[in-house]
């Protein structure tokens, strides 16, 4: 294992009941890179992300973070390394934004204890990192979907993680907020050296915002694996691969030196 490796996924397979969703997925993710997982609905993107965060246990295979099996790490140790931003989060009580973000300090707070000064400082830093210091005293229930996404990113960053996992960070967001959120995520990765792994719906977002892309397809029948390709965005997002993943015909167009996928 080389020192620059952040996350290693080794032959992970997973089934819900009799339907197999992931088949022998192997990945090696470089420290500090932004990796997106794309593929059609039901191809196992979210499942893979949850397996990496040890929220789900795979039927087979293992996941290593910085050389250690995630299954062997105590929960609070893992939470100091990995932050997780769930998809479309909502809560029943109108907690203040600050009170939501500070829960990210959980892995640093001993049992029978509450957040201390350092935890509050880290919380304020996470709020300003995501640009939502002004919302700190607002109730979480009264802010927009885009702002909630930023709150959950701030909460994950309060964990001081070296790996940030995000499940569809752009779903429920409008066009502008999609771009702003993705820019912020890549900016956090650059400035803090955080490894980012996120699932995305839009293949063009993956082309624009990632260092590497993992393209999955839905498993059906006796196909051996559901990973089509993994690597540099331009190499993975070819018309042939997109056809294999989504069954959609696309053409690559060049816009001011940038490649974009255009459905035909």
């Amino acid at each position: 294992m080389n020192a620059a490796e952040g996350i290693r996924v080794e032959e992970v397979s997973m089934a819900y009941g009799s339907s197999r969703i992931l088949n022998e997925i192997s990945l090696s993710i470089r420290k500090g890179s932004v990796v997106t997982i794309v593929g059609p609905n039901g191809c196992g993107k979210t499942t893979l992300l949850k397996i990496i965060n040890n929220l789900l246990k795979p039927d087979q295979g293992r996941v290593f973070v910085e050389g250690t099996d995630v299954n062997l790490l105590p929960a609070h140790r893992l939470a100091r390394i990995m932050g997780y931003v769930p998809q479309g989060h909502k809560i029943s009580f109108p907690f203040k934004v600050r009170d939501v973000v500070i829960t990210g300090r959980m892995p640093y707070i001993p049992a029978f204890s509450s957040p201390k000064r350092e935890d509050m400082e880290r919380t304020e830093q996470a709020l300003s990192l995501t640009g939502i210091s002004g919302l700190a005293d607002h109730p979480y229930s009264q802010i927009s979907g885009g702002e909630r996404q930023l709150v959950m990113i701030a909460r994950a960053m309060a964990q001081q993680p070296s790996v940030l996992l995000l499940d569809e960070p752009t779903s429920y967001l409008d066009f502008k907020n999609q771009i702003l959120t993705l820019k912020m995520i890549t900016e956090i990765s650059r400035s803090k050296g955080v490894t980012v792994i996120m699932t995305l719906h839009d293949p063009n977002h993956a082309l624009m915002f990632s260092d590497e892309v993992v393209l999955l397809r839905k498993l059906n029948g006796n196909r051996v694996g559901n990973m089509i390709a993994c690597g540099l965005p331009q190499e993975v997002m070819t018309p042939q691969n997109i056809m294999a993943a989504y069954g959609v015909e696309v053409e690559i167009v060049d816009v001011k030196g940038r490649k974009l996928l255009m459905p035909l």
């Binding site: 929220l55 929960a75 769930p86 500070i102 990210g104 959980m106 029978f112 509450s114 994950a156 964990q159």
Partner: peptide, 23 residues
Amino acid sequence: ITLRWRLNVLALGEEEARSVGMN
């Protein structure tokens, strides 16, 4: 009263609580 802050963590949702390392 001693454990009360952890109810904030729990009240955000179970997966959210587990992902910040709560048992």
